[in-house]
Every structure is written in C-alpha cells, then in structure tokens.
Amino acid sequence: MTGDQSPMLSVCGVYKEFGGLMAVNGVSFNIPAGKVTALIGPNGAGKTTLFNLVTGHHSVTRGEIRFGGGRIDGLAPHEIAAKGIVRTFQNLQIFGNMTALENVMVGLHLQGRSGMLAASLRLKSARMEEEEFHAKARDYLERVNLLSRADEDAGSLPYGEQRRLEIARALAAKPRLLLLDEPAAGLSHPETIALDDLICKLRDDGLTILLVEHDMDLVMGVADKVVVLQYGTKIAEGTPAEVQADANVIQAYLGSDWQAGDA
C-alpha cells in the first residue's frame, strides 16, 4: 500500500505560513495513481490550505509539489488545471450568474479552442464546438442526476444540488487528479449514499481522487489510503484500518470527531 511505485502527486516537505501561523507545517505524502486517498483531520488542520497549495491558489512558503514527475508549485491555477488537477470547493463556488448547464460548460473550457473572433462571427468551427459542448455538458449533468435542472439558474438550486453541480463541472474538465473538499457537507443521508456510489464509480473508471471529508463512514468505505493532519502536521498515514488503530490518531482526533461522524 505504502510502496507507491508511481505516485501521481507528491507533496514534499511543504510549509505554508499565514502571517506567523504555520497552517501547513512540513507535510509530505504521496497520492497513488488510480486510488482514492482521504485527507482527514479536525477543523483548522490545514486540509483546505493544502488543496489551495496543490491547485496553485496559494503559493507554498517552502517545499515542493510534483505532479506526474514535474514540479507544479509556482504555476498559476489555470496552468495547474490544464495539467489535469481539478477541484471542488468546500465553500461552494458556483457561477450564480449562469444556468446549471452553462456552469458545466465552463468546465469544458480547456477542451475548446474557439476564441473571441470565431465566437462573435459564429463561424462554423465555433458553432460545432458549441453543439458538442452542449451535448457533453448534458452527459455530465446526467451523471450527477441533475439533467432536469439544466436550464435553471445555478444560484437558485438547493444546496445539495449545487454540491453535485460542482462535481459535474469538475468532471467536465477531464481531471487526471480530482480534489474533493468536503463534498458531503450539508448533504442528506440518501444524498451521501449517492455520492459514495459516484466516488466508487469514478475510482473504478481509473480516476485518482484526493478526498477531504468529515463523514467517517464515507471515508472508511471508499478510501484506499488515509492521511491524517493535525495543526498543519501529518500525524498518521496508511490504510483505513491502520489509521483507525493508530494511537496518535485515536488520542488526537478520533475521540471526539469519530463519534460525531458515526452518529
């Protein structure tokens, strides 16, 4: 398990400081290709910050992040997206000024080529791309069971549907590595089960996933590997069973939150 022959992503000795606060404090771990890796830890542990470092939304204070062999720390977020790392947001970042379908079509951005001129003049190439995008976006909406909402304003969808819309939009961007930041937060029980199914299906299709999640049933059910953070430091890493049995983890974290997750 820990002998990852070809890690898809390696985080090597990464630090992130916010005005004196070390939000991420020398963290290293690998994400194996084709597996689901879960990143867990209490609130404020630095999980979202680590996501922001991997996707380039924040710059690392020190350390290296490698993806597919090359360094990606220092690249702009849109360049990292172009390499195939796509994320969802813990605090939803839906395009509220567009329909659900258009949100997913933004996810297809990198697969398109038509520019301002071709679009303004509605050249044949732009029209064909547009039709193709429509069809593809509808497919992705169907995968998260939102097709019936295609033409509704994304901003007016209920919370759970906005979460799924974010996943559809991320999938549309054809990720090689998908980062999900608390995708089950605020979901109902049946919605969480559907999410569980979706994540398993994506993994079976060969997608590599990094998952931040508080719902321990979900984490232990789908994760192949778990990394535990506390106060910006990695305190454990291993299979779900290993982590559950880890004394540090039980002492530092599981005592309280574990039960909350189970309830």
């Binding site: 939304h57 977020p77 796509v86 970042q93 000024n97 079509m105 933004v106 679009a119 995008f133």
Partner: peptide, 25 residues
C-alpha cells in the same frame, strides 16, 4: 454571439467566481 460562447462563458465565470474560473482553467 459572444456571450453565448466559450469566451463569453469564461467572462461570466470571472464575474461569478474568480477562483472557480481559474480552477476550470
């Protein structure tokens, strides 16, 4: 024509959420 195209959606995405627009490339 422009607003209902790849470019137009990218522009509206910038308005809707800059971080999400960046994350989509």
């Amino acid at each position: 024509n422009l607003i209902n195209s790849r470019t137009g959606r990218a522009l509206r995405a910038v308005h809707g959420s800059e971080v999400a627009a960046q994350a989509m490339g």
